[in-house]
Design a protein around this nucleic acid. Structure first.
Length: 646
DNA sequence: GTTTCGGTTCTTTTT
DNA sequence: GAACCGAAAC
């Protein structure tokens, strides 16, 4: 590969950051200023300087970001970047805990609970205390309290007391559920997402020899989206980087939008205090958006005084202003968006150059209906994560149980597919089997069959051969084959009988089978599965980008992406800012940052849609006030448009 | 006592 | 769509 021309590829701000000498580095990178570019060139710079890629660690928050950076780095320096460690915090913690988890009290084949699993456990536990009736928080709420406590390293009591202060909820009950939940996870040898981080840190705190090993190994550590780190992640990185101190963090305190999950932008603010010799670089030259869009974004920044002040400087030229669209209600909003899209299409934009963003998934309901009716292709970065869909978890349950006979959750899921067996019966059978169920031997299979009711046993017989074949046909290194056989012998029919959209779901299953070929063993696949959130990010993105379709996305999921044209729905008080989040920790500040993230996704055109009313289910009408983020924008920075049809 | 089914309600954000 | 609730069916 020819040497990279850094001077040509980067501007002065970026170049300085890329060529920063060893030691702690903080890069404040505003939206659209080439953050990803800067990180990947930094990696390239290090590799070109002779650093072994295997000694570089690149931490990100999403699988997508990890993948994108790895690919771009590879494009730059080619195969030399192979072996680079890259991934999310959760992935890295998992990787280490799979090796050393025994030192913090887990068997190495622990299972990872996704949110659905966690919810199920909390529900059962709360039910056991007879708390499922009224006046007790739902599993989701309890989990968010537990999670916030975990990620901030605060006592559950404190978080719960604050969360429920105005409600007649007995905190002791909450704590009882919490303790039982923790105990149950232990019994299952399972970790939820938070446990991965907690135990990852515990490993570093309590096992100096392990910590030293990794400190020694990683010469350079780079952290993307550093503003989104929580206390645990920040300390984990600090410890890991302690010896070599080659820690480079990149972030934008103004794009911190995950405080509800424990992220604390003070980590980035205080970075220079923790590392006195920090070199700070600021990237403020925006390559993405037209000046009119940045004007609006800058107004938004100025509204929040307690952060690093920055001003986005446009490179591009043009006098177009963002458009404030007034319309009657959700239906008219949808019609407006579609009409504009058709018009922009005629003027040369592809559908894939356009996106509709919103605060919450349900904000796009009317639009989805209308797009479907008019047969305009669109893709949603969905709320339901691929690997958490019922059918995906179903088809993986057999594999899970074969690999790990003690996986009770898999057992309950699998046997629950059989007639006459629900949660209670399944749990009872598992208990009767001595809390394990070996499907790899004829004896183990028989023991299970004997305990099943007749109808279930008859159906179970179809599945049995797969367990034996797992051994005889050496399927341990072929997860896809196990799933395939399960579908052939059983699930195919089950799906058709159970789901009205069985065809679509079975397509998902086929995609899953294809996907497993990336893994060399069943264990490797299962060990990572829970951490993979959606297939789009993992599979060939080519397929998604090839088809010309409009993108619908929440603002959170749009972070880091860009489109020529962006529509922002429901920019009215109560929807955005969301009334539910206003009384929470981040409050208005976080909503404001979210608005900033939304506006800065747009390159050429930005439409802020502002319906006048919201229709309720029962036919009522709620008037909507304009969002405070719009009213604070000087009117001359915006164009106005009105919906004319009705 | 459990499972299954049908109807109702609600939907923030993610690893 | 899925989680929840109540009632019918096993």
């Amino acid at each position: 590969m020819s040497p990279i021309n850094f001077q040509k590829a980067l501007n002065a701000e970026q170049l300085a950051a890329v060529q920063a000498p060893d030691g702690p580095v903080l890069i404040i990178a505003a939206a659209g200023t080439g953050k990803t570019r800067t990180i990947t060139y930094r990696v390239a710079h290090l590799v070109e300087r002779g650093v072994d890629a295997r000694r570089i660690l690149l931490l990100t928050f999403t699988n997508r970001a990890a993948r994108e950076m790895m690919e771009r780095a590879e494009d730059l320096v080619g195969a030399a970047v192979g072996g680079l460690w890259g991934g999310t915090f959760h992935h890295m913690a998992n990787r280490m805990l799979r090796r050393h988890g025994d030192l913090v009290g887990y068997k190495l084949d622990y299972t990872i609970l996704d949110e659905d699993d966690s919810r199920g456990i909390v529900r059962v536990v709360a039910d056991g205390f007879g708390l499922l009736g009224k006046h007790f928080p739902k599993p989701d709420v309890l989990l968010s309290v537990f999670g916030l406590a975990a990620n901030k390293e605060l006592p559950v009591r404190e978080i719960a007391a604050k969360q429920f202060e105005d409600h007649p909820i007995d905190i002791e009950d909450v704590l009882r559920v919490y303790k039982a939940y923790e105990g149950r996870k232990r019994q299952l040898n399972a970790m939820d997402f938070d446990d991965l981080l907690i135990n990852g840190l515990k490993l570093f705190r309590e096992q100096p020899s392990v910590l030293e090993k990794y400190q020694d190994h990683f010469e350079y550590i780079l952290v993307d989206e550093y503003q989104d780190t929580n206390t645990i992640q920040a300390e984990w990185v600090d410890r890991l980087a302690e010896r070599r101190r080659n820690l480079l963090v990149v972030g934008d305190d103004f794009q911190s939008i995950y405080s509800w999950r424990g992220a604390d932008y003070r980590n980035i603010i205080s970075f220079p205090n923790r590392y006195a010799d920090t070199r700070i670089f600021k990237l403020e030259t925006n390559y993405r958006s037209l000046p009119g869009i940045l004007d609006v974004a800058n107004v938004c920044i100025a509204g929040s005084p307690d952060q690093f002040q920055k001003e986005l400087r446009p490179v591009r030229e043009g006098s177009d202003k963002p458009v404030l669209v007034r319309c009657r209600a959700g239906e008219e909003q949808a019609l407006y968006v579609i009409e504009r899209i058709q018009q922009l299409k005629r003027s040369g934009y592809d559908l894939k150059d356009m996106a509709v963003l919103y605060r919450a998934h349900f904000h796009a309901l009317e639009l989805q209906l209308e797009l479907a009716r008019q047969r305009i292709p669109f893709v949603i970065t969905s709320g339901v994560r691929f690997f958490e869909q019922a059918h995906i978890k179903d088809v993986c349950s057999l594999l899970r149980l074969i690999v790990n006979p003690e996986d009770e959750l898999a057992f309950v899921r699998l046997t629950g597919l059989l007639p006459k067996i629900g949660e209670k019966t399944a749990a009872r059978i598992f208990e009767a089997l001595g809390r394990q169920c070996d499907l790899k031997t004829a004896d183990g299979l028989k023991r299970l069959r004997d305990k099943l009711p007749p109808a279930a046993a008859a159906m179970w017989k179809e599945i049995e051969p797969i367990g034996l074949a797992y051994v005889s046909d050496h399927l341990a290194d072929d997860p896809g084959e196990v799933i395939y056989r399960f579908v052939q012998t059983f699930y195919d029919e089950y799906a058709v009988e159970t789901f009205e959209n069985a065809e679509r779901r079975l397509e998902d299953v086929n995609a899953l089978i294809d996907f497993t070929t990336k893994f060399e063993s069943c264990e490797a696949f299962l060990g990572e599965m829970a951490l993979l959130t959606n297939l789009d990010a993992e599979m060939d993105t080519a397929q998604v980008t090839q088809t010309d379709a409009l993108r619908l996305s929440t603002i959170h999921q749009a972070k880091g992406l860009e489109w020529s044209v962006v529509f922002l729905l429901w920019v009215v008080d109560g929807m955005f800012p969301s009334s539910r989040s206003m009384n929470e920790s981040g409050g208005e500040g976080e909503e404001r940052r979210l608005f900033y993230v939304a506006t800065t996704r747009a390159k050429d055109r930005l439409f802020l849609c502002q319906p006048e009313i919201r229709r309720t289910r029962d036919g009522g009408v709620i008037p909507c006030e304009p969002s405070r983020f719009v009213t604070e924008i000087p009117p001359d920075l915006l164009k106005n448009d009105y919906v004319r049809f009705i």
